[in-house]
């Protein structure tokens, strides 16, 4: 039982990062129908920004803040420089362009910074562990969970109560009718990319705190996780993305804990197969709606 609770806590902590990640990806998909493959590179951008900031002598916390902002700025630039010129070319072209963009960015990291991992030392307080009724809970796990939940809460609050949030919810439902109310499409789209970037930044900070390093391909795992969580939750559903993130995080931790040691390296593969089984039963995902075609 303790073992189970222990894993649940670890799973919730990891899942909360995944939830934030998936939400950011779902954000842009919901508004624009773009699956941004280069979303993972926003995590790397956060990491490199944190690396340079800490190298310049800034505190870890300040660096983290700057890192998250950098991801938001980068996300906006992606829209302006790549996606906007390709507007109207269709899902496949946009998806592939974002894939290419992710390769360009990885190339830049490799050339301009280093192909090797750069360390970002997290403050020692994060690695402290306190024991609680037989459970070992690290400060990092708690901080991760709290930061992720607060972020998700603030995001929900923003979307529910602010003018801009309302505009974005309306735009995701029906962009043309929203524009007919005087809401600028360009502004809503930029805002979607900015929010997506901030979420990537927050998830990035949490991810980097966990791994302690950043490499040119740091974004690979996060983007995969976000993809899987978004499909698992149901494409186009932000709630689904968050739930999908949590489910996938918990699944991964439990597989790691309970799989026989010989197959633990395949843990990720097992998690994906489990998701495939869910999708076989429910192809539209946990929170997705079967598409109603209008003729």
């Amino acid at each position: 039982m303790t073992q189970f609770l222990q894993q649940l806590i670890n799973g919730l902590s990891l899942g909360s990062i995944f939830a934030v990640l998936a939400l950011g990806l779902a954000m842009v998909y919901g508004t624009l129908g773009i699956l941004n493959f280069a979303y993972g590179e926003l995590i790397a951008i956060t990491g490199y920004t944190m690396y340079f900031a800490t190298q310049a002598g800034l505190s870890f916390w300040l660096s983290a803040l700057i890192g998250a902002v950098a991801a938001a700025v980068a996300s906006i630039l992606m829209q302006l420089l790549v996606f906007r010129p390709l507007q109207g070319t269709g899902f496949v072209t946009l998806l592939f362009a974002s894939f290419a963009l992710s390769q360009v960015l990885q190339g830049i990291f490799r050339q301009a910074i280093s192909p090797r991992a750069k360390g970002i030392p997290a403050p020692e307080v994060l690695s402290n562990v306190f024991e609680f009724g037989g459970l070992r809970i690290s400060v990092l796990n708690v901080v991760t969970f709290v930061v992720a939940m607060v972020s998700l809460g603030l995001f929900a609050l923003f979307m529910r109560t602010s003018r801009s949030g309302l505009q974005m919810r309306a735009a995701a439902l029906d962009l043309t009718t929203t524009r007919l109310q005087g809401v600028s499409a360009g502004r809503v789209i930029l805002l979607a990319f900015a929010l997506s970037g901030i979420l990537a930044g927050i998830a990035g900070v949490l991810w980097i705190s966990r791994t302690g390093t950043v490499t040119p391909t740091t974004g690979a795992t996060p983007i995969l996780v976000a993809f899987v969580a978004v499909v698992l939750g149901g494409l186009g559903s932000t709630v689904g993305a968050v739930v999908g993130g949590f489910v996938f995080g918990i699944l991964e931790v439990f597989l790691e804990a309970y799989l026989p040691s010989g197959v633990v390296p395949f843990q990720f593969a097992f998690a994906l197969i489990a998701v495939a089984v869910v999708l076989f039963a429910r192809p539209e995902g946990l929170f997705g709606k079967a598409v109603e075609v209008k003729v």
């Binding site: 003018r163 309302l166 505009q167 919810r169 309306a170 439902l173 029906d174 009718t177 929203t178 007919l180 109310q181 005087g182 809401v183």
Partner: peptide, 26 residues
């Protein structure tokens, strides 16, 4: 200018009040 579109095009999942608030966005 406002268009009251064919088929009404209200934002179904949003509340009545939110629909009205979107109308005043400009």
């Amino acid at each position: 200018l406002r268009l009251v579109p064919e088929g009404r095009r209200i934002f179904g999942p949003l509340t009545v009040e939110e629909n009205l608030r979107i109308g005043s966005m400009s």
